[in-house]
Amino acid sequence: MTERDKILGRIREALTISAPPPGEHGPETHHLAGHPIQFAPRPAATNAREWLPKVGETFEDQVAQFRACSDDLKTEFIVAESLADLPKILGDLRDRERWKQAAAHRSDLTDAAVQALGLPTLTVDGGYDVRALERCDVGITTCDALVAQTGTLVVTSRSSGGRALSVLPPHHLVIARRDQLVADLPAAFELIQQRYGADYPSMISLVTGPSRTGDIERILVLGAHGPKKLTVVMI
């Protein structure tokens, strides 16, 4: 008998006696073996939207909410009219932050950003030198979605250049399209499941603001281990 069988055996034996439904602690009537209680738990997945913080319905409302969350989180959020605006926006960023070396993965949006920046760029697709990536000033990625409700971006190991590109360099620059903005977290999970089905990437990360810690006297410090700065450019 394997350890798996032993543990599952103990679990099945324990579960022959039913537990009272949550939130109830009346007389101990449920504890009779062989008398499973009739209780249909409601799954959090089905109606989470009803209880979570409210999100505006129009695109403008949702952009405004994403901006408000970004301000709270200290994410820099820039809306660009079109790809043609990228050279100006990214050029200003590059000069302000004094970027010398960038890293990116290949995609339409990131290629446009790399071209706009005009910096020496490490491409991570197919493998890369970790130390070289660590020396880069900025990691440029796309994302799967922006979530208005919480100011979150969804990155994956497939859509955002693997696991490290979005977290190792001190600045994470995300290029997104306006149709990637979704209202809330349930919509984000729906999108992930529709896009990938059973063939999902090995890492899916919901990123909400630049890296932070409050471990010293509960005082907020940005850039604990991940990026100190996060910039989202929505086209």
Partner: peptide, 21 residues
């Protein structure tokens, strides 16, 4: 917090086509 900074799902080791992991 409204949401913790990183909420990450791991579903396996590096998959074919992924650049690291």
């Amino acid at each position: 917090q409204p949401l913790t900074c990183y909420n990450t799902l791991y579903g396996g080791p590096r998959q074919p086509g992924e650049s690291d992991g």
